[in-house]
Design a protein around this nucleic acid. Structure first.
Length: 527
RNA sequence: GGGUCUAUGGCGCAGCCAGGUAGCGCACCGGACUUUUAAUCCGGUUGUCGUGGGUCCGAAUCCCACUAGACCCGCCA
């Protein structure tokens, strides 16, 4: 049990600490420690993309907690070319393939470009989770020439770089071409224009626009040959070298990355250190989120885990908890994780306020720290009323009409809560959405013979009249018997009609909860 | 070809990244309640932590090797 605890005891603190140690060794200024997150702007931003920024923000918080000034740059890669049309997007985008996403009109017409449409979805996710950032865009960065010095140095060293890329990651391409893609002056496509010569004194690249293979598709080039001025004309560095240019230009000290771009980071680190003479930022690698096993079949939009969709079922803290609880490990992710995350947050809160005892001191501190990060280091002063999310889902399944009111009443009856609160209303709404979307019961065919119909009729009539709720259970039993139906069968039929399942809560009190008259009407529909 | 991750009760998983009595959900068993089922509540069973080494007073946790599976890169971003 030795070794002192760093900061708040989480991996975030450890990471920030390592970063600081490294910066001190490098002897760089500690006045402002910038962290960066790259936001893809070509695909629909899912929770993994959001994770990159949220985690970087965690590091920023940790640095501030250590007493340093820090800032998160959210950089939208909106000069990237569109490589394929995302699911659910119109085919009209076909003609824009390979063009920079910020030059493609928004197919939904609500933003200035396709790229901004995508970025705004992500930024909205950040806003909703309470992440503060400074937004920068690739297109502005290049237009303003913020990277021009770095581009120049990189292109001057392109032969050395091409060789190194081949050595580090086995990609031969940049031994033949420059790691710079001009936007073709004729057809505005990006990847089709291959640059092959750098005219150093003029700061221009010579390029030719020809067919390029992107994914499994061939994109036709227009055959245009031209020169592009790297300080003025639109174009961008290849990803293998672009990060480095950005790090150096923006003075970035930390950037997390997913394992899919591991190779790019390896190359960029080298470029940064050796070519641009800017010690690369501190990194942490994270695993990608995977679909739940077997869930890949359906690529419908409903299966893409976006922050917006997540927030229909869980609160922002559940997203933060998901991303802050750990960084290592491959993870299969789906909306079905929301209930346990919602409950886990409550547990953490109990630990934080000392309502759950944790013996291990290190673990106690870590749990408390995690709670603080999930609250963006501004934890509530007092604990809130906890309601188990799964219980809410169960109740929401039963009460579909006037849901909030009725579930709230049940919670009061159960003694789970003392008073109705707006916060609980919100929870019921979330759990209700979850129940509606995911907890669909298997629909069973209801097989009714004449005697069951007769029994249902009798029951319906009885329920329609005034009756003591306590007797309903008994009445049902009697009706079944007098119609020569196994009570077991009759109860099953009732559950199928009322709930769409073959089982359920004790039916007498349940029927009075829903309302006898309502059930009576319901039953009639089956006769 | 290169790389990363994963392996923990019957099933699904947490715990591992900062070593200190192996946990949760489902399932299962018992009890309470119920003139049936179920639900609910209370209690309980379930493990050589993939294999083999190593470090340590102490390893699910750290290190090395191996086995199996998943994923990523080798287009592009």
């Amino acid at each position: 049990m030795e070794g002192q605890i760093i900061g708040k005891g989480t991996w975030i603190d450890k990471l920030a600490f390592e970063l600081l140690e490294r910066e001190k060794t490098l002897g760089r200024s500690l006045d402002l420690l910038r962290v960066e997150s790259g936001l893809g702007a070509s695909g629909v931003p899912h929770i993994g993309s959001l994770g990159d920024a949220i985690r970087a923000y965690g590091v920023k918080l940790a640095l501030e907690n250590f007493g340093y000034k820090s800032e998160l740059i959210a950089y939208s890669d909106d000069l990237d070319g569109l490589r394929k049309i995302p699911e659910g997007f119109p085919d009209s985008l076909q003609e824009h393939l390979a063009k920079p996403v910020s030059l493609i009109p928004d197919p939904f017409g609500c933003h200035e470009s396709y790229g901004m449409h995508m970025s705004s979805i992500l930024l909205d996710g950040l806003d909703k989770t309470g992440i503060a950032y400074e937004f920068r865009r690739a297109i502005d960065t290049y237009k303003k020439g913020l990277l021009k010095e770095q581009i120049h140095i990189i292109l001057k060293n392109s032969i050395k770089i091409g060789g190194k890329i081949s050595e580090l990651v086995g990609q031969e391409k940049y031994q033949k071409f420059l790691p710079y893609f001009p936007v073709c002056a004729n057809c505005s496509r990006l990847y089709t224009a291959e640059s092959f010569e750098y005219l150093e004194s003029e700061r221009k690249v010579r390029y030719k626009c020809h067919d390029a293979e992107i994914g499994s598709k061939i994109i036709k080039g227009c055959g245009h040959e031209g020169e592009a001025d790297i300080t003025k004309d639109l174009g961008k560095l290849a990803w293998k070298v672009e990060f480095a240019a950005r790090w150096a230009a923006f003075d970035i000290r930390f950037e997390a990355y997913g394992k899919d771009i591991m190779d790019s980071v390896k190359v960029n680190d080298w470029i940064s250190d050796e070519i641009l003479n800017y010690p690369h930022p501190h990194h942490v690698k994270y695993e990608m989120f995977l679909d739940k096993g077997g869930k890949k079949i359906s690529k419908s939009l409903g299966n893409v885990v976006t922050a917006q969709k997540w927030l229909e079922f869980g609160d922002p803290k559940s997203i933060l908890l998901l991303l802050y609880k750990r960084i290592t490990g491959a993870r299969e992710l789906g909306f079905e994780d929301i209930p346990s995350l919602m409950n886990e947050y409550n547990e953490l809160e109990d630990v934080f306020f000392g309502r759950i005892k944790v013996d291990n001191q290190a673990k106690l501190i870590k749990s408390k720290g995690l709670y603080e990060y999930v609250n963006l280091l501004d934890p509530p002063k007092e604990t809130s009323t906890h309601v188990n999310y799964r219980l809410l889902v169960e109740l929401a399944k039963i009460f579909k009409e006037n849901r909030i009111e009725r579930v709230m009443k049940k919670l009061l009856d159960y003694g789970v809560i003392k008073n109705p609160e707006p916060r609980i209303e919100k929870l019921i709404e979330l759990a209700g959405n979850f129940a509606d979307q995911f907890d669909q019961q298997e629909k069973t065919e209801i097989d009714l013979n004449d005697s069951s119909k007769k029994a249902l009729k009798t029951l319906s009539e009885t329920l329609g009249a005034e009756e003591e709720p306590e007797d309903i259970q008994n009445t049902i039993y009697q009706i079944a018997k007098s119609n020569n139906i196994q009570p077991k069968e009759f109860f099953k039929i009732l559950y199928q009609i009322i709930l769409g399942t073959s089982r359920g809560p004790k039916i007498g009190p349940f029927i009075s909860d829903i309302g006898r008259k309502q059930v009576a009407k319901n039953l009639l529909e089956y006769i």
